[in-house]
């Protein structure tokens, strides 16, 4: 196992992406190697409130002259994320990570991946898309949001897809942009039209992931889901973030996940 580290990071950028989501970029003075799907635990503020760190999926990692920029996209849902949104550039942030596993990105020539994101599940999918594009691996992208104003980074997504001749399918629940309805329905239409994927990689709200799990299982498509569970430690000792597996075992998603093959998960993710 690679030794995990608590990195001393500083805020490089905080900027709004949508009315509810914002980009947080942290500068670490050392190299950081990360895979799409991995996450980091951030301390939101000094002191005892909030007590616990928050887990956030990584949206990308890039080297700069000063070190490594770690990019995350956060949705403001409570006190922790509100405090992070108000941080000023230069503010220190303790960051433990990268943690957990990542998506299986390897494919053979001629194969294609389906990348599926809903809402604030986009960061690991964007990270995967840009990494796959850099490697010349083919994929289609299915990105959903509640409404047009909650879709973000569309230009980056389109650019990544264009590199490998992939399709970018945007969906909104209210039909205000792209195809109306859920991303899983958009994926199903492609499958019905005969498009073949070697694997689907997905992150998003539980109902979306369950719908994808059902679709993938019904069509014999391999799928990997990045799950989100309440997490205290992020390093496998609190056992708060357990996920039920197909064999009935409860395993910590921070350590054995957060990415799980659908076939490994309990039936509620598949049926």
């Amino acid at each position: 196992m690679i030794a995990r580290r608590d990195l001393a990071a500083r805020v490089a950028i905080v900027e709004d992406l949508t009315p509810t989501c914002f980009r947080l970029e942290l500068l670490c003075c050392e190299p950081v190697a990360a895979s799409p799907g991995q996450f980091a635990m951030l301390r939101c503020a000094p002191g005892l409130d909030p007590l616990l760190r928050r887990a956030f999926s990584l949206a990308g990692v890039r080297s700069t002259g000063d070190g490594t920029i770690v990019e995350m996209h956060l949705k403001e849902v409570g006190r922790g994320t509100a405090l992070l949104r108000r941080l000023a550039p230069g503010a220190p942030v303790a960051m433990l990570g990268p943690l957990g596993n990542g998506f299986t990105l390897g494919i053979a020539p001629g194969q294609r991946l389906a990348l599926v994101a809903g809402g604030i599940g986009l960061p690991p999918v964007l990270f995967a898309a840009e990494m796959l594009a850099a490697h010349g691996s083919a994929f289609d992208l299915f990105v959903g949001a509640s409404t047009a104003g909650e879709l973000y980074e569309v230009d980056r997504l389109a650019a990544a897809a264009a590199v490998v001749g992939g399709e970018l399918v945007l969906c909104t629940d209210d039909g205000s942009r792209g195809e109306p309805g859920f991303v899983t329905a958009a994926l199903q239409r492609r499958l019905d039209a005969g498009r073949a994927y070697v694997r689907a990689l997905a992150c998003g709200p539980d109902p979306m992931l369950q719908a994808l799990g059902r679709l993938a299982t019904a069509r014999g498509l391999e799928a990997e889901l990045s799950l989100e569970e309440p997490m205290a430690c992020g390093v496998g000792v609190c056992l708060g973030c357990v996920v039920e597996l197909e064999d009935g075992r409860l395993v910590p998603s921070c350590k054995e996940g957060p990415v799980f093959p659908v076939s490994r998960l309990a039936a509620r993710w598949r049926a």
């Binding site: 005892l48 409130d49 909030p50 007590l51 616990l52 569970e229 309440p230 205290a232 609190c238 056992l239 708060g240 973030c241 357990v242 039920e244 009935g248 075992r249 409860l250």
Partner: peptide, 18 residues
């Protein structure tokens, strides 16, 4: 032992319940 069905933890003021 398998342990309890989640949710298993919740953060509270300067503490947590497990």
């Amino acid at each position: 032992r398998r342990g309890n069905t989640p949710p298993r933890i919740v953060e509270t003021a300067a503490g947590m319940i497990n």
